[in-house]
Nucleic acid binder design. Structure first.
Lengths: 139, 139
DNA sequence: CTGAAAAGTAACTTCACGTGTTACATTTGT
DNA sequence: ACAAATGTAACACGTGAAGTTACTTTTCAG
């Protein structure tokens, strides 16, 4: 969904877009968009101005933004289950294994991000334009 | 947590273990273990017998089971957000982009699984035994 | 300088989901 | 036949994301 928003921003290249417009475009609420934009600002992917006639825009060209950056900006942590705290004092091995698993998971996570980094925002848009689905909708 | 259960099964190599025992070992409920075992059975990772004196065991040696298989067996689908159905009919590009994103995500997912596949269950257990944490707890 | 348009933000509701729990049917070995 | 186990259904609970409302703050334009 973050990708959807950034795609719209890429379309309006350089222009400032209000969160209300984005919200309408993604069919959701302006506040949610703003919460999302906050994360993207922290990641230096967008710039947002306040006040009337302002809005947000990409802080770099779409060709210089890859999906791994977006992923990192939005998904704060690992996609793995952190169980509802089973202290599990009984088994001494339990904690050790969690430590080892964490290592393995971060490695896997990095592999995932390396793959995502192969695709830039601009590349995604190109792929969409070239897709059969898009061609069909155009006519 | 699936890993935790399988680790216990690997310890009791070949022996049948009841879900009650596993539940106690992971500090949870037998039913949850059984639900987990159902998924692992479907993935042909464990064999479970019914009736008295029965239980579950690994269907292969721990050295022949890698974490990617466990991941696939347990996490049925992608770790990516499937929004609460925003039909989003307004934007014709929306659907196209979801299709393209799906391609990219499955690619990233495969990269993740390739990395997980590098570690076998037996390898994980070895790593835990060698870890500083485990050595500390032993004394 | 005033007003409107925007973001920032807090508090609340809603909803989906994983986890847990109880209860019961079913299977199977002794 | 009985006891021990799994399979399974139905429900309660807690958590976290998404959504909603309302208010404050900033900034441009006249």
């Amino acid at each position: 969904m973050a990708v959807h928003v950034l795609t719209v921003l890429a379309y309006k290249d350089g222009d400032r877009v209000t969160s209300a417009f984005l919200a309408d475009s993604v069919n959701t609420n302006p506040v949610i968009i703003r919460r999302l934009l906050l994360a993207l600002q922290r990641a230096k992917l967008v710039e947002t101005g306040k006040g009337a006639g302002s809005g947000s825009r990409l802080s770099r060209s779409a060709a210089r933004i890859n999906l791994a950056e977006i992923y990192r900006a939005v998904e704060d942590c690992e996609p793995f289950a952190k169980p509802t705290r089973k202290p599990n004092a009984a088994c001494p091995v339990g904690q050790c294994m969690r430590d080892e698993l964490e290592k393995i998971f971060t490695s896997a996570q990095q592999a995932l991000e390396r793959d995502l980094a192969k695709t830039t925002l601009a590349g995604l848009i190109e792929a969409v334009k070239a897709s059969a689905c898009y061609q069909r909708a155009k006519k």
